[in-house]
Amino acid sequence: MRRRVMHRFANPARFLRIAKPLTPWLLWLGIALTLGACLWGVFFTPTERLMGDTVKIIFVHVPAAWLGMGGWTGIAIASIVQLVWRHPLAGVSARAIAVPGATFAAICLITGSIWGRPTWGTWWVWDGRLTSMLVLFFLYLGYIALSNASSEKGDTSRVAAVFGIIGAVNIPIINRSVIWWESQHQKASITLGGSSIDQAYLVPLFVSVAGFSLLFGALVLMRMRTALAEMRIEARMRRMADY
């Protein structure tokens, strides 16, 4: 029964019927929310008690960090689905996540560095949080190299999937790093228990996170559609060569 449900979406044609109309919605809504949240954050939030106006960097830094980490979590889940259920779309979706995830991780690292200079007094420190986030970025690069090198099907694609699952160890390390090590980066402001960020920043921050997430979804859909179209072309070429 579950197999049936899983495989309903396994059919690329069925997936495309949903993905094609969904893509522009996610894209435009994501762009609108992201731009709106950034304008709100930059021009209509108060200056912070100690940081002054540099607090506004939070509206791009935090969503980028969450999506950089969420992206790898998605790769790991898709890789498990690929290995266990041989779901044909799972590998495609894992690959589609890699480049956006790496870019968001890079945006997080760069904006964090820019934020650190005036507030902490340094562009970079080798503390647990910053180092583990840099490791995540390198993991993305390794995953991209591996999945580019392997073909869509067969053993080599499984190597990338295994790499995606093993690399997921780093995600809880990033999350816990500020607790495990005495670090320069402050502890989590937003936890399941609540937030120590004032409402004036928290609301636009969540709008920004929502916008970034929708954009991320649109990017993954677009890249999956690209991969599926390329697979169709390849299959067609092979059939033509057979004649």
Binding site: T54, I57, W115, P118
Partner: peptide, 12 residues
């Protein structure tokens, strides 16, 4: 502060 804020948003 302005250059730092502008740089972050431009990079993003």
């Amino acid at each position: 502060h302005a250059p730092f804020i502008i740089a972050s948003f431009v990079v993003t």
